[in-house]
């Protein structure tokens, strides 16, 4: 049973408890994100950093508790594909922002 199911994402050794833990963590991080913006409790600069940290943390919570990615050998290729896509994502977004926001100064 474990042998067959461990290899499958979304259903390997899953328990109600795992989903509830993931849910509580995701809920807390969402509340932190909204709280940072709605309460103005910290300066804008800190709030921006806080938002990105909370977003990345919540994505990791979702990947771990909901999509069941881990460092086991069965998940190796899934994690590798995700890492490669994350690299592409970074190049696309950061590259686009870099090129377009410095367009004027570099065209002079």
């Amino acid at each position: 049973m474990n042998q067959t199911h461990n290899q499958n994402m979304g259903a390997g050794h899953i328990t109600n408890k795992g989903y509830i833990t993931g849910f509580v963590l995701a809920l807390l991080l969402t509340i932190i994100s909204f709280g940072l913006v709605m309460t103005h409790i910290v300066s804008r600069q800190f709030a921006v950093i806080g938002l990105f940290v909370a977003a990345v943390a919540q994505m990791l919570v979702h990947l771990h508790y909901f999509l069941h990615l881990d460092r086991s050998s069965a998940q190796k290729w899934n994690v590798l594909a995700l890492a490669f896509t994350a690299l592409l994502l970074f190049i696309f977004v950061a590259g686009t922002v870099w090129v377009l926001y410095t367009l004027n100064s570099r065209m002079m």
């Binding site: 994100s33 909204f34 940072l36 921006v48 990105f52 979702h62 999509l67």
Partner: peptide, 21 residues
Amino acid sequence: WHFLDLVWIGVFTVVYLLGVL
């Protein structure tokens, strides 16, 4: 379904929360 929820984290952070901040 879980993937869509994951993308939504990016959407509400970047589009809504950073926008309003």
